[in-house]
């Protein structure tokens, strides 16, 4: 495990230019909690979550909108938080990995990926978890999917295709999605 003193307390840095023209108030519901801070309009949603709210589960892999590591849910939809300004999320509901489940009480997606040993270095992981969560939720609501049919590999791979992982070759993540689906189905059936 990493040394304990690396768990440094979080200190948000204030924007140096406080002129009213260049600051905006962002208020949004993040993981169920109402949050409000004043930031520069240029602050991305990802930076707002990480730097202003200290929610560092969301990772930045490219800030070019490609890798998907920063994927969060905005009003339930997966979006790239590096491609959204914080101010665009005003009055919206944002969900990050911190809002899924805890070590003691994992969300089925987290549990599925734990069981399947889906990840290696863990850097892309938060984006995948949010993309998978949204995928399984949407799939569960879609009438086109007959009840009880497990997602196929092809279907899962398509759903994961907007998230890049450099470690795994994806197969273990596909397995994790299927396992998460099983856990969800079992608990729904119970």
């Amino acid at each position: 495990m990493p040394p304990a003193e690396l768990q440094t307390p979080h200190t948000p840095h204030t924007p140096p230019d406080e002129s009213p023209d260049l600051t905006v108030t962002v208020n949004a519901t993040v993981n169920g909690t109402r949050r409000s801070t004043t930031v520069e309009p240029r602050r991305t949603l990802a930076d707002w979550l990480r730097d202003d709210l200290g929610l560092t589960a969301t990772h930045l892999g490219c800030e070019q909108g490609v890798c998907g590591a920063c994927t969060v849910l905005v009003d339930g939809d997966p979006v790239r938080s590096c491609l959204m300004l914080a101010v665009q999320a005003r009055e919206m509901a944002v969900t990050t990995v911190e809002g899924l489940g805890s070590v003691a009480d994992m969300h089925p997606v987290q549990q599925g990926c734990l069981d399947a040993m889906s990840f290696q270095c863990g850097f892309c992981t938060p984006g995948f978890l949010m993309a998978i969560t949204a995928y399984l939720a949407r799939r569960g609501q879609t009438a086109e999917v007959p009840d009880g049919r497990a997602p196929s590999d092809d279907e899962i791979r398509e759903a994961l295709s907007g998230n890049l992982c450099r470690c795994t070759g994806y197969q273990s993540i596909v397995d994790g999605v299927r396992r998460a689906w099983e856990i969800t189905s079992e608990s729904a059936g119970a």
Partner: peptide
């Protein structure tokens, strides 16, 4: 792109 792009 991908779903998350089309969502925004």
């Amino acid at each position: 792109g991908h779903g998350p792009i089309r969502n925004r």
